[in-house]
Design a protein around this nucleic acid. Structure first.
Lengths: 312, 312
DNA sequence: CTCCCCTATAGAAAAAAGCTATGAGCAGTT
DNA sequence: AACTGCTCATAGCTTTTTTCTATAGGGGAG
């Protein structure tokens, strides 16, 4: 003889005659609807359900409360208890409607916060700018950091999304390519090289080079390009940060490597594109995959995607 | 080929992908429990359900809202939307708890109203008095009327219960016998009959009699007794109301009929029991059957029953 | 590297809520 | 008085939801 212990346990846990609360939202809604409509049938019509369903809902509420809520005869009328509980039932319903309103506010981006991390402002800011312009009621905060910090921030949910330079989509994260990266050799505007459109890696080796710090994506890509061209660059110094790089170049300490777009707006520098930028090196909009379930985040990513490859 | 039109219609009514609100109380409760407990598993334990159930509830809430409420990793944490909705969810839950508290207040008679009708104060008042003494937090109101009016009031739900003299249980109503009725011939204290303990109906016929008005239960019973004894009483006058009857007797206008208990406290009158009071004539506590579902009413009836035939 | 804790998923069983059809009580009408 | 139209209640059945157990996969701590 075999016994289903699981089922037994469950039943035995509540052996007393009292069933639990059993107060359901739909029962409360039904109760309120009946009182408002003044009859079971009208309430059924108003709720868009059948009349027996209304009967059953109210009966189950009365059974759950073990209180008669409505006199059915001679005409529909609240009992004293019913009058008392009706007020509270309506309160619950209105709180619920508030909740639902809140949900749709969040979903329709009438309210919400978004925090975005940037590895560099050049590409990201125009995207962010057009997003806040289109959704003026959102609160948006940004943080600048390097790619690896920002990816960690995303993993830790400290930010919702990031726009960063990467050498390829990050595993486990949702990545949307926003712009391709082109590595540029940056020279002073008065340098003879400034008139060239492109340059081969091996031609760079002749001149002293300024390199970004270890861990920088700029440096990673530069190293990969030189390795692919079987060339050793002549690295004179190492600097931390884009701004330091620019100032070093302007000061005549050597050629520098930056991404092409990073020189925009600085007339003292001229970018000369380096041939052989590896595929996959690009700026991505990155989020935790599950964060796409958050309407604000999804909207941001969709906005970015749309801006990059607008529908024809 | 046959088609189940009912089923088809129902399905076709919501062909769009969006399911409706689907926000459930248990889902909200689960959401709040998860946040409070800090983990799905702990919430499951706290709620007394299995962990998958908690997972499913939260997922269904997120699906219903189409919003991610909680980051599961790296650790459980509210999203912005989740934080926002959590506050409102808790509001709903606390309203619900208020509702449930209200229910149990009503059920445990910590609050409530009871309106009782009386056909005469003599028997009813002690019962009512001991009831309010035992349940001091209840509001109780009484109304005096004749039996037929009060029965109508009950049918119309204008009062919750009545304590009335009747010739037998009323059909369709819940009736509890509170006291037997003994018809008494009432005489002035100085009347020779005052020394008799009982009297036969035919002995009354020799003296002028004062009778209650048509419709009075007193009169109905008196008439039935005289008819059973094949005697015609010598009715000198007819009065309306108990007080008028008493004053008429005191004024020496004749003998009167009252119920034995109705003369208590008036030393000018002496009751002499009339033999042959028909069975079934009694004072009953009456309510609409369904009203026993109202805790206050049920408690009152139970109290009355207990007072009449206390458990040994 | 492994263990442990946490959450997600699958599949089956139970519970709940819905529907249609029908019954019964009460008014107002013929 | 039977009729008619309204009310709500009940029965039987189907669909949906909720719950369970069992199990898989993902991270963090030792």
């Amino acid at each position: 003889m075999t016994v289903d212990v699981g089922t037994m346990t469950r039943k035995l846990l509540k052996p007393d005659g009292r069933q639990e609360s059993g107060i359901t939202l739909s029962a409360l809604r039904t109760f309120v609807a009946i009182v408002d409509a003044g009859s079971f049938s009208k309430a059924a019509a108003a709720l868009g359900v059948s009349q027996p369903s209304v009967s059953i809902q109210l009966n189950s509420l009365e059974r759950a409360c073990r209180v008669l809520l409505l006199h059915r005869r001679p005409r529909l009328e609240l009992t004293d208890a019913g009058r008392d509980l009706f007020v509270r039932a309506r309160l619950i319903i209105s709180r619920l409607e508030e909740f639902e309103g809140s949900v749709s506010d969040l979903r329709d981006l009438r309210r919400g916060n978004l925090s975005v991390g940037l590895s560099g402002p050049h590409v990201a800011m125009p995207l962010i700018g057009s997003f806040v312009e289109r959704n003026p009621s959102l609160t948006l905060s940004t943080r600048i950091g390097n790619t690896s910090t920002l990816l960690a921030d995303i993993a830790q949910c400290r930010i919702d999304a990031a726009i960063v330079a990467m050498m390829g989509a990050a595993p486990g994260l949702s990545c949307t390519k926003v712009a391709d990266l082109r590595l540029a050799l940056c020279v002073r505007a008065d340098d003879p090289l400034a008139r060239r459109r492109t340059i081969r890696p091996q031609d760079v080796a002749a001149r002293p080079l300024i390199m970004r710090e270890e861990g920088s994506v700029t440096r990673q890509i530069a190293e990969r390009i030189f390795a692919a061209a079987r060339t050793r660059p002549n690295i004179r110094m190492e600097v931390t940060g884009r701004e330091a790089m620019k100032e070093a170049i302007v000061a005549g300490l050597g050629l520098g490597v930056l991404f092409a777009h990073e020189t925009e707006g600085d007339s003292r520098l001229v970018p000369v594109e380096v041939a052989g930028t590896p595929p996959g090196a690009a700026i991505y909009a990155v989020t935790l995959g599950e964060s796409l379930e958050i309407p604000v985040v999804r909207a941001f990513i969709e906005h970015v995607t749309m801006r990059v490859s607008p529908r024809k």
